[in-house]
């Protein structure tokens, strides 16, 4: 098993086919989420988060092929968040007058692709894997920062709307090529 394919739910759980009604709902939720993030509609993004959310971005290390399990470091993270701390971050960005890391704001584009959905054993929760590509530009930079990652999510159906209950963001860079993560992924 390579590091990037470590499933959040056991692979024996049934795949939900691409193009099915549930798959389309989930895809639409992730597209909408990307739009909220790119358009700085962070309060709406906050509504998408479940109150028991765990949101983490583990560190990556370059390890030999036979030690790939150790390539993802779960003891240290670039993001180590829960619902409350993410709400704190949203408040800093939207309610204070001096969140300089995003003022002027980054221009971002979140690209979401390769969405694969599995059942989880809980009827209201889905294990969703997706590839992410973030482009980010600030000030007069003449280049794009490009950050790629895979996301292992749990999405939960709450009274007909989907909420993010768990997210693990696994970056492809061991040394992140960005000055900070004042943006969400």
């Amino acid at each position: 098993m390579t590091a990037n394919t470590k499933p959040i739910a056991a692979n024996k759980e049934k795949r939900i086919p691409v193009g099915s009604e549930t798959y389309n709902r989930i895809t639409e939720a992730l597209y909408e989420e990307a739009m909220w993030l790119d358009e700085m509609r962070l309060e709406e993004w906050g509504d998408f988060l479940a109150p028991d959310l765990i949101y983490r971005a583990p560190l990556r290390l370059s390890r030999q092929r036979d030690e790939q399990a150790a390539s993802i470091v779960h003891t240290m993270n670039h993001y180590d968040e829960d619902y409350g701390t993410l709400m704190g971050r949203i408040a800093r960005l939207t309610q204070t007058k001096s969140a300089w890391a995003e003022d002027p704001p980054s221009r971002t584009r979140h690209f979401v692709s390769n969405i694969l959905v599995r059942e989880t054993g809980k009827t209201d929760e889905y294990a969703v894997k997706s590839n992410g590509l973030l482009t980010r530009n600030r000030f007069e930079e003449d280049h794009m920062q490009v950050i790629s990652y895979v996301r292992n999510d749990i999405l939960r159906d709450v009274n007909g709307s989907l909420k993010l209950a768990k997210r693990e963001i696994v970056f492809d860079m061991a040394v992140l090529g960005t000055q900070n993560l004042s943006i969400f992924l």
């Binding site: 993001y79 300089w100 890391a101 000055q179 900070n180 993560l181």
Partner: peptide, 15 residues
């Protein structure tokens, strides 16, 4: 949450 890559304090320094 406060320092380093995503640290809410230090993200302003590194920018």
């Amino acid at each position: 949450g406060m320092l380093g890559t995503s640290g809410m304090i230090e993200q302003d320094d590194s920018d």
